[in-house]
Simulated scan of single mutants.
Amino acid sequence: MIDVYIDGASAGDPGPSGAGVFINYKNGQVEHHSVPLSNMSNHEAEYEALIIALDLCIEKGLMAASFRTDSKLIDDAIEKRYVKNKRFQPYLDNAIQRIEQFDLFFMKWVPSNQNRNADALARRAINKS
């Protein structure tokens, strides 16, 4: 099973945004993905990072993954399969549709200091746009 760290960042609310995905294969191999996004809120960028990471895993056939996020919003939404703010419902629906393709999927909240790689990648993506 691989570990996938995700983060979204925005320079403003809304503002230029980026997604960071750090994949740890646990065999010494890692991948860094820094994806520029359009102007959006930080929460939207967090959801975009999740969907991008899910798509990367699906494309690579990595169907057993433990995802890590420092976003309580994302962790709670995936765990409960519910969003309080209906603006985020399409993001949740898209994520769940992808998650259902996995053989094994876990989502875990981690403190920000354990998600530094994904955070740096998300911030780098903002600078690319």
Rank of each mutant, 00 (worst) to 15 (best):
I2F: 03
I2D: 03
V4R: 06
V4Y: 09
Y5E: 02
A11D: 14
A11W: 11
A11K: 14
G12I: 01
G12K: 02
G12A: 00
D13W: 11
P14A: 00
P14R: 00
G15R: 02
P16R: 11
S17C: 03
V21F: 04
I23Y: 07
N24C: 10
K26E: 12
N27G: 13
Q29E: 15
H32E: 15
H32C: 12
H32G: 09
P36R: 03
L37A: 03
L37T: 07
N39W: 14
S41E: 14
N42P: 13
H43P: 12
E44A: 11
E44L: 05
A45D: 08
A45P: 09
E48C: 08
L50D: 06
L54Q: 10
L56R: 08
L56F: 08
C57F: 02
L62I: 08
A65C: 01
R68S: 15
A77P: 07
E79F: 10
K80V: 00
Y82A: 01
K84Q: 12
K84R: 12
N85R: 06
F88C: 05
Q89C: 10
Y91T: 03
N94Q: 13
A95C: 04
I96A: 04
Q97D: 14
Q101Y: 03
Q101P: 07
F106I: 11
K108D: 14
N113Y: 11
Q114H: 10
Q114W: 05
R116A: 13
D119W: 03
L121Q: 03
R124G: 10
A125Y: 07
K128F: 10
